[in-house]
Computed example of a mutant assay.
Amino acid sequence: MNDLGIKDTARRALSGAVIAVPGAGGPLGRAVLLRLAAAGAIVVGADNDPERLAEAVAAARESTGGGATVTGEPVDLLDPEATRAWATRAEREFGRVDGLVHLVGGWRGGKTFAETGLEDWALLERLLIRTVQHTSLAFAEPLRRSERGRYVLVSAAGASRPTAGNAAYAAAKSAAEAWTLALADHFHTSAAPDRLSAAATILVVKALVHDAMRAGRPHAKFAGFTDVKDLADAVAGVWDRPAPEVNGQRLWLTEKP
């Protein structure tokens, strides 16, 4: 393992791969961009916050001494046509698309089931489901054409065991998982026998933590949380495994509920 925590096999698997990363501007997006760029991937980021995205892209480029190809552009992932146009541009510019790592997130919740606001569902349905629908539909065929296509969704353990105050969030995450598993079935059923090269995979965490959170709450233990750097390593590791091994799988980075 090298000094960035990336296995040599993952580096070989990702070298030259073209990976799209929607939601690239947040703490997790920044960690994923750094990992993919360090592994030799061509990274195509997108976010709805241009300033935050520019900072994440610059950090990823600087992490490799300017040797990595990392781009970013604002894309409205709630617009299906804009999302398809982004996929088309990426494939036209780089000749292929080998992966999409879906990092668009959001959370709303309450203390009790009775306090659940349907306005929370309306927001989460857009952020957590619509964006998955639009990116998967836009990138499904480019990924299927790739020799190492991967669609990676980050989900939450709460989708498998919803709590009373988390109804809207858990339901939205569960729907996003179901949609991703349907994409996995598309990859499976459309591939020639023993020739599956594309996969849709779900990485499951309890919750995420990053350095700024620890600095803001120095006495918190964040028990069971996954550090964004560790999740970024897990993302890179998806390319290290054969498509049949990860297609349609939930890969747990926390204890199963």
Score class of each variant (00 low, 15 high):
Asp227His: 14
Thr163Met: 12
Arg92Thr: 07
Arg241Lys: 13
His102Ile: 05
Thr69Val: 11
Gly224Thr: 09
Ala184Phe: 13
His210Lys: 06
Gly26Thr: 03
Asp47Ile: 03
Thr180Arg: 12
Thr112Ile: 02
Ala178Thr: 07
Leu127Asp: 06
Glu147Trp: 08
Gly72His: 05
Ser155Lys: 00
Glu147His: 06
Leu103Cys: 03
Ala20Val: 03
Glu255Ile: 03
Gly237His: 15
Glu255Ser: 04
Val104Arg: 03
Leu203Glu: 05
Gly248Ala: 12
Glu55Val: 12
Glu125Ser: 14
Trp107Gly: 00
Arg12Ala: 03
Pro50Leu: 14
Arg96Gln: 04
Leu14Asp: 02
Gly117Lys: 15
Gly165His: 00
Asp76Gln: 06
Ser160Leu: 13
Ala171Leu: 09
Asp230Cys: 14
Arg61Ser: 13
Pro257Trp: 07
Arg52His: 02
His102Val: 01
Leu4Ala: 07
Ala10Leu: 06
Gly5Val: 01
Ala140Asn: 14
Val75Asp: 08
Gly29Met: 09
Val154Thr: 11
Gly109Ser: 14
Gly248Phe: 02
Trp86Phe: 10
Ala200Cys: 13
Pro74Ile: 07
Asn166Val: 03
Thr88Met: 09
Ala46Val: 00
Gly40Cys: 08
Asp233Lys: 15
Ala60Asp: 05
Ala167Asp: 00
Leu33Ala: 08
Ser155Ala: 15
Arg30Asp: 02
Pro50Val: 13
Thr189Asp: 06
Leu4Asn: 03
Leu143Arg: 04
Ala60Cys: 09
Ala10Trp: 03
Asp194Tyr: 09
Gln133Met: 09
Glu177Lys: 14
Ala234Glu: 10
Gly99Ser: 04
Ala85Gly: 02
Val75Leu: 08
Ser136Asn: 10
Trp86Asn: 10
Gly110Leu: 09
Val75Lys: 10
Gly25Asn: 07
Thr9Phe: 11
